[in-house]
């Protein structure tokens, strides 16, 4: 490219501008994790890992907020317990348990694969996550919901 460019070449000014970067899932950012098209199970587990991670962080803050109710007084805390032990709300506990189990177990898988120790068994480890996580979730769910 000569400094001035060839006179008369059409489109020179428009070409000089940086092009738009497209991401999966449209405009990009976080949606790029979530666009399921063309993804295999590895990409989906990545997306789920990120989602459960974000959810657990959010839960942590909610949890801290809720604990601060204790500062308000005993009746506030009792009212709160009434809400969260209702049948509908306990379903959230099951979802929470799912997030904890998946994020924790998959985290072990990611750490093992990601540090180069079990790269070839990456798929098998994902099934191990399911094999350990699913019964644990079922047991926990029965315990939470059946304890009513």
């Amino acid at each position: 490219m000569s400094a001035a460019g060839t006179p008369g070449l059409p489109g020179a000014a428009e070409r000089a501008a940086p092009g738009p970067v497209r991401h999966k899932g449209g405009a990009g950012g976080v949606r790029g994790w979530l666009d399921p098209r063309g993804r295999t199970i590895g990409g989906r587990s990545f997306a789920l890992h990120r989602l459960t991670g974000v959810a657990l962080v959010a839960y942590l803050y909610v949890h801290l907020g809720v604990l601060s109710l204790l500062l308000v007084g005993e009746s506030a805390w009792s009212d709160f317990l009434g809400v969260v032990t209702s049948k509908g709300f306990l379903l959230f506990d099951v979802v929470l348990l799912f997030a904890v189990l998946f994020h924790g177990l998959n985290g072990i898988r990611v750490a093992l694969v990601g540090s180069g120790y079990a790269v070839r068994h990456e798929r098998a480890l994902l099934w191990a996550v399911v094999a350990i996580g699913a019964p644990a979730l079922a047991y926990g769910a029965l315990h939470i919901l059946g304890g009513l």
């Binding site: 008369g8 070449l9 059409p10 489109g11 428009e14």
Partner: peptide
């Protein structure tokens, strides 16, 4: 003395001597 060109990046036309 030159060529008439079409740029497919912009759709613009021009002449280069």
């Amino acid at each position: 003395s030159g060529a008439a060109l079409r740029d497919h990046v912009t759709g613009r036309c021009g002449e280069v001597r």
